[in-house]
């Protein structure tokens, strides 16, 4: 995943990759942002957890309701007070809420 390209998304403050255990592998931070690599490292661990939970819920929902359309999951986003984190697979981006384009972010995170 090209992190520099991710930083071109509207309102992007940070882009990052992480491994399956949630450990931060690489990142870019926008100059002037208050986010730190330490915060990103904590965030990536929650990203892995949230994606796993969302995957379980999607699988369960489809099995119980008979409705399709959730799997394979294409990502998860948490909308905070000032920024949102959008993740999929092993990559994520943090965008300012006022500029956020969630669709563009999810599309950018789709595996090639």
């Amino acid at each position: 995943m090209n992190l520099e390209k991710m930083m071109d998304l509207p309102g992007a403050m940070a882009a990052f990759t992480y491994n399956d255990r949630g450990e931060l592998q690489s990142h870019i931070l926008r100059e002037g942002t208050e986010l730190t690599p330490q915060v990103l490292d904590l965030l990536t661990r929650s990203c892995v957890a949230n994606l796993a939970i969302a995957g379980m819920e999607a699988r369960g929902w489809e099995a119980v309701t008979g409705q399709g359309g959730f799997q394979p999951l294409q990502g998860f986003s948490v909308v905070g007070l000032e920024w949102s984190v959008v993740v999929n697979g092993n990559c994520g981006v943090i965008v300012k809420n006022r500029d956020a384009d969630y669709e563009a972010a999810f599309n950018a995170l789709k595996p090639a």
């Binding site: 330490q38 999607a58 998860f76 969630y102």
Partner: peptide, 21 residues
């Protein structure tokens, strides 16, 4: 508690992006 006033709290919402829904 890790980084006070980092801009995420309080959480406003969340999104689960499925394949079609």
């Amino acid at each position: 508690s890790f980084a006070e006033n980092c801009g995420c709290r309080p959480v406003q919402g969340w999104i689960v992006r499925g394949a079609n829904v």
